[in-house]
């Protein structure tokens, strides 16, 4: 079945079997390996991508379900101006150890701050509660998301002034 998915701003057309999972399609079909496969049983959240802006587990969605929709992977966070605030903040705040859960954590963080420009500790913890970090580096992940929110708010503010 032929499907077209807008991945990180570019249309990607391919002929896929209905049973192909979105995560396989992103990694093997589109060659974007920043989206990881962890448990493959809807438990760990490392395969998180944004579908029309909402974080979902791409191991638990068929590629054909994403036909005509927009998918953002970690590769799509970076803009022409440089790193996304959440990427810069994960670097600055040591929001990662082994890095395996990081693409998912950053996408969930980016989706959260798009909705909530000043999330509390509890709100960040609630938002990432479907994502496991086996390094247990949650403290710095929470700090990084909050730092990203502050940086995004500051840069939005300065855009508004100029």
């Amino acid at each position: 079945m032929e499907i077209t998915i807008n991945i990180n701003g570019s249309d990607h057309t391919a002929d896929v079997e209905p049973r192909r999972l979105l995560v396989d399609h992103i990694r093997t079909g589109a060659g974007l390996t920043g989206t990881h496969i962890g448990c493959d049983t809807t438990s760990c959240g490392v395969c998180t991508v944004l579908v029309d802006g909402a974080p979902v587990k791409s191991c638990t969605m068929l590629a054909v379900q994403a036909d005509g929709r927009s998918v953002t992977t970690v590769e799509g966070l970076k803009t022409a101006d440089g790193l996304h605030p959440v990427q810069q903040a994960f670097s600055d705040e040591h929001g990662l150890q082994c890095g395996f859960c990081t693409p998912a954590m950053m996408l969930v963080g980016a989706a959260l701050i798009a909705d909530n420009p000043d999330p509390s500790d509890d709100e960040v913890r609630w938002a990432i509660s479907g994502n496991l970090c086996r390094c247990t580096g949650y403290m710095n992940i929470v700090k990084a998301v909050q730092a990203a929110a502050a940086a995004a708010a500051a840069s939005n503010g300065s855009d508004g002034d100029s």
Binding site: T42, G45, P55, V56, T60, V108, A127, G130
Partner: peptide
């Protein structure tokens, strides 16, 4: 219900 990612679908 489940977790935030599952709740979105």
């Amino acid at each position: 219900i489940a977790d935030p990612l599952v709740r979105n679908l």
